[in-house]
Amino acid sequence: MNIFSIPANVAVSDTGFVFLPTTGETFTLNEIGKEILRMLQQNKNLDEITEIILENYDIDRMSLEKDINDFLAQLKNYSLLVEV
């Protein structure tokens, strides 16, 4: 079950540019950040996301888990992610 969700109005462009219309704030995501955010938008859960990244990138599970947790904390900090 997915306990995170991305607010519906968050727009992510192909360049990794993020615009939060409610506050006017803008952000940049790196490539993996963009992929993860897109997957979260598609309501994939963390396990699915982890598997997909592991399959495509040269990284071990433990490191990825740490990084994803940190990334989610950053998104939350910027109100790009809400816990439901």
Binding site: S13, T15, F19, T26
Partner: peptide, 11 residues
């Protein structure tokens, strides 16, 4: 437009 801003900010 935000597109112009995006170009500068990202590229």
């Amino acid at each position: 437009d935000i597109k112009a801003f995006e170009k500068i900010a990202v590229l």
